[in-house]
Amino acid sequence: MNTDDLIRTLATGAGPVESRAVPRRYAVALALGSLGALVVVATHLGVRNDLAVLAELPMFWVRAAFAASVAATAFVALARLARPGVPLGRASFAMVAPMVAMWALAAVVLVLAEPMMRAMLVLGSTWKTCPLNITLVSIPVLVAVLWAIRGLAPTRPVMTGATAGRLAGGIGALVYTLHCPELEAPFLGVWYVIGMAIPAALGALLGPRILRW
């Protein structure tokens, strides 16, 4: 087919473009992904029964805000990466900010703590399971988000995959707080960060394979 014929064919079949198509796709993916994450926590890990007590502690909300801000900054970056020709700009710095804030808080906590207590503040009681649990909870979100991005047009597949993973990790960690007993900043700064980095790495690996178009 020559190019003029192709153009005629494309133009004839083309109707108006749905301007809400992109936001709707994200909304569906995030809703389904979060639901999947909730199901994983509820069925495999168990929701804590002392949530009402924990919710009175400020660190419970700091932890939730930490995970939520990782997810939110990743989402902003992802929305840019999924559209061709939109630079990341400050969105890439914003993604680092939640980590830096948590590490700063962790440093303060460790400096003020009794030296004997420091290892415990970092390791908590669940350091062995935390990163993999967060990864597990993130997987439904990662699948849903990658599905959403496949319908868009990412031109940087590794970066886009990694950012999708970061978003999944943030939401996964947020949902995981329904199960997790750890509230100390040093623990969160190490094990939550690792737990969110694993889905990001998975996304970076998957990106070039499944985000091609």
Binding site: A21, R83, V86, T155
Partner: peptide, 24 residues
């Protein structure tokens, strides 16, 4: 051209069309 056609919903009207086209 086919790619641009299939992904034209990813164009953000607030941004330059040439940047979008160039990236694709």
């Amino acid at each position: 051209l086919i790619a641009m056609h299939n992904r034209r919903h990813t164009y953000d009207p607030g941004r330059p069309l040439t940047a979008w086209a160039h990236a694709i």
